[in-house]
Amino acid sequence: MCGRFTITRRDGNSIAAELGVPADSFVDYRPRYNLAPMQKHFIVRIKYENREVIPATWGLVKSGAKDASMAAKCINARSETVEARPAFRDAFQKRRCVVPADGFFEWSGPKTARQPAWFHREDSRLVLFAGLYEAWQKEPSVWETTFTIITTAANAVVGQYHDRMPVILADRDADDWMDPRAADPLALKRLLVPAPADLLIATPVSPKINNVHNDSPELLEPAGQTLR
């Protein structure tokens, strides 16, 4: 699964450049070191053949929902069943996105002493999670965009901590995934596979990450040997 992630770049302009979106896409950007479900982030979608960044809340709420009571249960969607489950079926057909990040967390050890590990690229480049999005009417005349992150079987590195991981798309595949005019969305399931084992490293980090209210750079200071 994916229950927390990061995007730690200090400069929103560098994110815009890497994503291929306008520089003013990140006017209100701030780094996040412990982003949790039900919190605000942003997604990238295709609109009129161009990439567009829009704000969104983590936890998918279907467009016709009367409330967000199911959002916490829809932070992840399993790649194996995403096209069939009622919660995700419509979004899979029409509203596919990517969720920019630069790492995510998994935990090991007993419940009383959970040790988090930060999975990230050694070159510090972004990772693009495959996602789905929806917009629902939160209150009269107020619409909120929400998203979920698609997961798949873990690769060899993540598998030392958990049996699932977020789907990470290569940049060349991201546009295919996001294309709302794709003639056969089911064919895109070929992209929903584990990342190459050499893409990520795992760095043990501060247990203070276990508290969702903590969100500062020192959370990512190494607390053990990095796994490759």
Rank of each mutant, 00 (worst) to 15 (best):
residue 114 R to Y: 00
residue 69 S to I: 08
residue 74 C to Q: 14
residue 72 A to S: 15
residue 73 K to Y: 09
residue 79 S to D: 00
residue 140 P to T: 06
residue 66 K to L: 07
residue 88 F to C: 08
residue 146 T to R: 03
residue 131 G to C: 02
residue 132 L to D: 06
residue 115 Q to M: 02
residue 106 E to S: 00
residue 111 K to F: 05
residue 141 S to G: 06
residue 85 R to Q: 14
residue 118 W to I: 05
residue 88 F to S: 09
residue 68 A to V: 09
residue 122 E to V: 13
residue 150 I to Y: 03
residue 132 L to T: 05
residue 120 H to K: 03
residue 99 V to T: 08
residue 80 E to F: 01
residue 120 H to I: 08
residue 62 K to P: 10
residue 92 F to Q: 08
residue 146 T to M: 03
residue 135 A to P: 07
residue 109 G to P: 00
residue 79 S to F: 02
residue 91 A to N: 05
residue 85 R to H: 14
residue 64 G to H: 07
residue 96 R to C: 00
residue 90 D to V: 11
residue 146 T to Y: 10
residue 107 W to M: 05
residue 105 F to S: 13
residue 95 R to F: 07
residue 75 I to K: 13
residue 83 E to C: 15
residue 63 S to L: 15
residue 68 A to P: 13
residue 131 G to Q: 01
residue 139 E to S: 13
residue 118 W to V: 07
residue 155 N to P: 01
residue 149 I to N: 05
residue 62 K to E: 09
residue 91 A to I: 03
residue 123 D to E: 03
residue 145 T to N: 13
residue 76 N to S: 07
residue 90 D to F: 11
residue 136 W to V: 03
residue 122 E to A: 15
residue 65 A to K: 15
residue 124 S to N: 14
residue 136 W to H: 04
residue 139 E to G: 14
residue 141 S to N: 10
residue 130 A to F: 05
residue 104 F to V: 11
residue 145 T to K: 11
residue 110 P to G: 01
residue 148 T to G: 04
residue 124 S to F: 14
residue 63 S to N: 15
residue 78 R to G: 09
residue 153 A to D: 10
residue 109 G to S: 02
residue 136 W to C: 02
residue 118 W to N: 04
residue 129 F to K: 07
residue 78 R to V: 05
residue 73 K to F: 12
residue 106 E to L: 00
residue 81 T to Q: 07
residue 82 V to D: 02
residue 150 I to L: 01
residue 105 F to E: 11
